[in-house]
Design a protein around this nucleic acid. Structure first.
Lengths: 347, 347
DNA sequence: TTTAGCACTTATTTCCCGAGAGTGCTAAGG
DNA sequence: CCTTAGCACTCTCGGGAAATAAGTGCTAAA
């Protein structure tokens, strides 16, 4: 028997096992499957097939007299080959949108709101990250002087997102100079990514004539100062409590491992970052994740974009035994409406 | 025997029980106490006293052959009457300060940093809240136009704290007008609290002549728009994982209850808000808290201030069986240095 | 190829027992 | 009157033993 190509009957049985396990969280017996098929075949026949599926690594049993439990491989096969991706129904979309007022102008809060809704709708913990501004299209920078050497820097991107930060300058700069710098930047670099802005500025700095040098120098200094504040990837997390409801996390070992990952942030960021490379939903099942602590978890992640470029990702994290069908369709839908509403931020 | 006045021996025994229970997390036997007193009295004598303490509601036992466990009343008595408040040693203060660079200019991040240190130092979850800006001394407001009807509003307080928000205006306002409004506000209201600014503006609006009316109207409109964004109480929480280490939260019922409270936010905010009214550390023991879900927890909270007025509170939340001595002295110290460093934000 | 039947394996539950911990009470001693 | 030794009593905890239940693998027949 080929490992990846299963005949129809085997597919159906595997699917039944996976879905049943997702539903009940306990091992599935041959009898249970036979019942699902309305006894059109006997449990003995199912057992024969199950033995083959075990052989092929799709299912395993915790002990000889235990029922079968899907492996990561089974989930993977289930998602890639068996799952006919249902869309959300109109009613479900309606329900989500009715909760999503989206009349918030601040990116952070909007994202948090979306996650809260997503989390409640699917019943898993929702996570997201928004990437640093390296790839953001620059429109303009403005300065508001707070105190003599303390400066509020306002960055406006081409699509109208606003981000601010406060920096302490090493020396005082006159208001006049700041105006010049701001004007210079928006005249010269509008439309480029922030990364490009930095590069070009460095290039110009080398090639500049004396009269320009001073201004360029200061501009570069300031950019260097504010750069780390703008280029941070940020993690968002809502509905951590949903993880408690899952039976696999009643065991406090497992629970602690997951919660540790939540607070460490870095692992989740790494995983979600991958989603920036491609459009659409990606699923990370159990041990496919490189982090020991979430080997009992699956993630369903989808990028979101602002106009053209991917600027972050959102999704859910739950038990391996996740309701993938609902999770995938919901995450995809939510990512889409979120993309639309941040595109709407720039009116 | 009076309920609140215990003679010296009873005090000493109660203290021994409390401290021992805090240390070991398991019921304290008469023998254990006798040993602590180096057998200067027999365990039988201790038992007699214990029976009285039980009677008076200071201790209880989970079952007949179990040792004694302090009640909330015992902790309360311990804190109010028995605990001689040790200060942190110079070395401990040194340790805290060495980690606390405090070279961050943003209030939020500074607070988070402090909580992280506090949390690690005492080994409990650290929480804080910063009150809305109602009570903040106003210095100036500045506007940065983002798009035609989208405005970034920058609020600078008298002590140099900066807060920004983005609002969508119902109609377009010219740059010139915005300048005027900004100037008007800082000329007229600088040094008042934001609450007062609002009141005065309303008063002036009623009494104003026609030529002023237009400007005032618009100012009031904008203020009304940005008000909710500035007047939010915010919860901060660091080191949630420390709660897992405590044996009382190995039971996943208890753990879930606490974590639920963490994510609900409102209960913790309510409790901490009380601390705004008074200076210094307050302790909330177990069932003293009005929220069922944290009946297994104690909180140690201290206000912090910006110049004169209390603008928030910080502290720790841990098991009832908390090391109060260390918690109280550390929370007090950390609140103080935090107050100092935000006072330093306005240089 | 399918299926009924059955022996076999293993987890789960229940019950019991003994060891251990700690108390409350009593009676004796200062 | 206070302290203490001594002891019976209560309750928990851990470890078997036994009964029960779940589910499988195999065999042999249809």
């Amino acid at each position: 028997m080929s490992a990846t190509l299963l005949d129809t009957r085997r597919k159906k049985i595997l699917q039944a096992i996976v879905e049943r396990y997702i539903e009940t969280a306990s091992a599935v017996s041959s009898e249970a499957v036979a019942k699902l098929f309305r006894w059109r075949v006997s449990s003995a026949t199912i057992r024969n097939v199950m033995a083959e599926l075990s052989e092929a690594g799709f299912i395993w049993q915790a002990h000889t007299s235990g029922g079968r439990i899907p492996t990561d491989k089974a989930y993977r096969y289930y998602i890639d080959a068996l799952l006919d991706l249902e869309q959300l129904t109109a009613a479900e979309r309606q329900l989500i949108e009715s909760q999503y007022l989206g009349r918030n102008e601040v990116f952070d809060e909007l994202l948090r709101e979306v996650l809260r809704i997503l989390s409640h709708f699917v019943g898993y913990t929702a996570i997201a990250f928004s990437s640093g501004l390296r790839k953001i299209l620059f429109k303009k920078l403005e300065f508001v002087s707070v105190e003599s050497t303390k400066l509020l820097v306002v960055l406006v991107s081409a699509d109208g997102a606003v981000k601010t930060t406060v920096v302490q300058l090493p020396y005082q700069i006159e208001q006049e100079q700041l105006f010049k710098i701001a004007r210079f930047l928006s005249d010269e670099f509008s439309g480029l990514t922030l990364g490009e802005v930095k590069e070009r500025l460095a290039a110009q700095l080398l090639a500049s004539s004396d009269s320009w040098f001073h201004l360029l120098r200061k501009t570069a200094d300031i950019l260097e100062l504010i750069w780390p504040n703008f280029d941070k990837d940020e993690l968002y997390l809502e509905g951590a409590n949903f993880i408690f409801a899952q039976p696999e996390f009643q065991n406090s070992q497992n629970l602690q491992a997951v919660l540790r990952t939540f607070s460490e942030e870095q692992p989740l960021l790494e995983i979600m970052k991958e989603s920036l490379e491609q459009d659409g939903v990606s699923v990370h099942i159990g041990k496919e994740n490189p982090y020991q602590d979430i080997h009992e978890c699956s993630l369903v992640i989808c990028n979101f974009k602002n106009k053209n470029s991917n600027i972050g990702a959102l999704g859910v994290i739950g038990p391996r035994r996740m309701s993938y069908s609902k999770a995938i369709s919901t995450v995809r839908y939510v990512a889409r409406i979120f993309s639309e509403s941040i595109a709407g931020l720039n009116l």
